[in-house]
Amino acid sequence: MTPRQIEAYVDAAAAALDLKLRPDHRAGVLRYFALAGEFAEVVEAVPLDPHAEPAVHFSPVVPPEPGA
């Protein structure tokens, strides 16, 4: 999304939720939505097989120590 599209989305979402966005918070909210959009682009870039299914259970693991 372009910065203008992000602003329009944030303004529309805030209005729909009757959320009063403080002027001093606006820049941070806009940056967050831009960042979330960047994350979405990364996720959407991963090709999925038509038969790919979501995992039934996710078990996070502790990363190994460097040099281990």
Rank of each mutant, 00 (worst) to 15 (best):
M1Y: 09
Q5P: 00
I6D: 00
I6P: 00
I6A: 00
E7V: 04
E7N: 07
A8F: 03
A8I: 06
A8D: 10
D11R: 15
D11T: 13
A12E: 09
A12L: 06
A13E: 11
A13D: 08
A14N: 13
A14D: 12
A16N: 07
A16H: 06
A16D: 11
L17Y: 09
L17F: 11
L17C: 14
D18F: 05
L19T: 11
L19Q: 13
K20T: 15
K20N: 14
R22S: 13
P23C: 10
P23Q: 14
H25S: 06
R26L: 13
R26D: 04
A27Q: 15
V29D: 01
V29R: 01
L30D: 02
R31C: 09
Y32P: 04
Y32A: 11
Y32M: 10
F33K: 05
A34C: 03
A34G: 05
L35R: 08
L35T: 09
A36T: 00
A36S: 02
A36N: 02
A36E: 04
G37C: 07
E38D: 15
F39L: 12
F39T: 05
F39M: 08
A40Q: 14
A40H: 08
E41I: 07
V42T: 10
V43F: 13
V43S: 08
V43G: 07
E44S: 11
A45Q: 13
V46F: 13
V46Y: 13
L48D: 13
D49V: 08
D49M: 11
D49F: 09
D49L: 14
P50A: 15
H51V: 07
H51C: 07
A52W: 12
E53Q: 14
E53L: 15
P54N: 05
P54S: 03
P54M: 03
A55I: 08
A55Q: 11
V56G: 12
V56T: 13
H57R: 14
F58A: 02
S59G: 04
P60H: 02
V61L: 06
V62H: 00
V62C: 01
V62N: 00
V62A: 05
P63W: 01
P63A: 00
P64M: 04
P64T: 03
E65T: 02
P66L: 04
P66K: 03
G67R: 05
G67W: 05
G67I: 06
A68M: 12
A68L: 12
